[in-house]
Design a protein around this nucleic acid. Structure first.
Lengths: 254, 254
DNA sequence: CGAAGGCTTGATAGACCTCAAACACAGTGG
DNA sequence: CCACTGTGTTTGAGGTCTATCAAGCCTTCG
């Protein structure tokens, strides 16, 4: 993957994105908000299919996704790829390394994207002075963990059909939480091969299962746009329960 | 599952167990150590196959495993069970709920066990005053997350044979880290059905794969004792790399 | 317009599942 | 001491879900 992205000075909305993420559960004290607003952010435009962090790295900055789609993935010893998560704007992509030091996964951008790099050093300093902020960052990694558990359950115990329905429900909820849905649909530029690598399925089987979902009227797709005409029906098909995502339904944030 | 366990006052070694866990990566300041030593612990003997926490609960205490084996698991909508992790003495079983509020999994004891309950309230108070301690607790949940990612990769992309070999390697390393191995072996009272629920396999297939591993001389089992005569060979069979566990090789703790 | 990437389809194969029953072993009670 | 029970392990026989291989097709883009 190439690395010829151009780097720009951070603007203003970047900090707002981060704050929205950190305050998803509970508002921060105003002093903490101000401090977050002063974090350095190196903003960068990233071309499609580019890695922004590598398995085995010990990054000194944390990557915040501002625009576009990204995923975390592992390459296993025999060359297989497992995608671990998909990400929407506002997600912190590699916060895990702040305490563990080493990344056990890679992070790659799917569509053209914008990301902001924030030095771990600054985040750590900030957390020393603001326990509430530590809790907010911690909480974010805990939700990550809850999602991993849900995915593990799906890959371990659900059928291909259910897994795909479940994934699409999850994606809808995540996208909706950051206000990027419109008319029961959203832009989902993830290939069938990538869906397969996320769900432990072959591309061919993903294709056939998607056709089945379309035939059942559970999804409609044109290009990279995905529409879910009857969310409750898809939910039922995928045995989806959004509790594990810990998102407030829209408009009910604290 | 019954709940007729007897409860006793905490003794002394319990706090040492917790400290060993928290200092796995880095020693704590002595004041923090003393504070940890003053945490309340309600110790309880738990009979085999008993739940100590339930999916959907909002516990007010955190459960520390002192003796025996435990696992976290989910029951999915169609009744399937997915085991998410296996635990050895010293593990914190449901720390996730401290920030998330609700548990998205259940915790059950496998063999007869001893656990200690620690009030979240006290842990939180302690973390307010000691950022280094917050980091230690956070780190523990981050390692949990790294293990979930590895399991997800295995269930998604590895064969049954590899998954089982990988799991047994992981169990060996975890048990060894707390000093409970002897002569290349350890007590592993986990049934084949449980292994199946952990790896997304049927009991029958687990049985056949285990036989294959025995035939290859990679494992020896008598009753619940498991021996690994050639760890490097099993490692190769399971594509196992212990990096994600973030354990110091024994005797090299900080 | 050709190339590239992604989607779709067909045919075949295999890994793993389900059902069903037998076996082994430990604990219980008479 | 020996049936008796329960749980876990093992074996056999089919069946199916999903993978693999191999093309063909479609859209986008330089």
């Amino acid at each position: 993957m190439s690395d010829d992205a151009l780097s720009t000075r951070g603007g203003f909305g970047e900090h707002a994105r981060l704050l929205r993420k950190l305050e998803a559960a509970r508002a921060l004290p105003s002093r903490a908000r101000e401090e977050v607003g002063r974090l350095s952010m190196r903003v960068r435009a990233v071309p499609p299919d580019t890695d922004v962090a590598h398995q085995g790295d010990s990054p000194s900055e944390c990557c915040l996704l501002l625009e576009g789609w990204a995923c975390r993935y592992k390459i296993l010893g025999r060359g297989q790829r497992q995608i671990l998560s998909f990400h929407v704007p506002g997600d912190l992509l590699d916060l895990h390394a702040i305490e563990l030091g080493v990344l056990d996964y890679s992070v790659g951008v799917i569509s053209a994207a914008r990301v902001a790099y924030i030095p771990y050093r600054e985040i750590k300093a900030l957390m020393e002075s603001e326990p509430r902020l530590t809790a907010a960052f911690w909480r974010d990694t805990l939700i990550d963990g809850a999602i991993f558990r849900e995915w593990l359950s799906g890959v371990g115990r659900r059928s291909a059909h259910e897994r795909i329905a479940h994934l699409l429900c999850e994606m809808y909820v995540k996208v909706d939480a950051v206000g990027l849905t419109s008319d029961d649909g959203f832009d989902f530029p993830v290939t069938q091969a990538e869906i397969g690598d996320a769900l432990g399925l072959s591309t061919v089987h993903v294709n056939r299962s998607l056709q089945e979902l379309r035939r059942q009227g559970l999804i409609i797709s044109r290009g990279s746009r995905l529409e879910i005409p009857d969310f409750e029906a898809l939910k039922a098909a995928g045995d989806f329960n959004p509790m594990y995502l810990h998102v407030q339904p829209r408009g009910q944030a604290a």
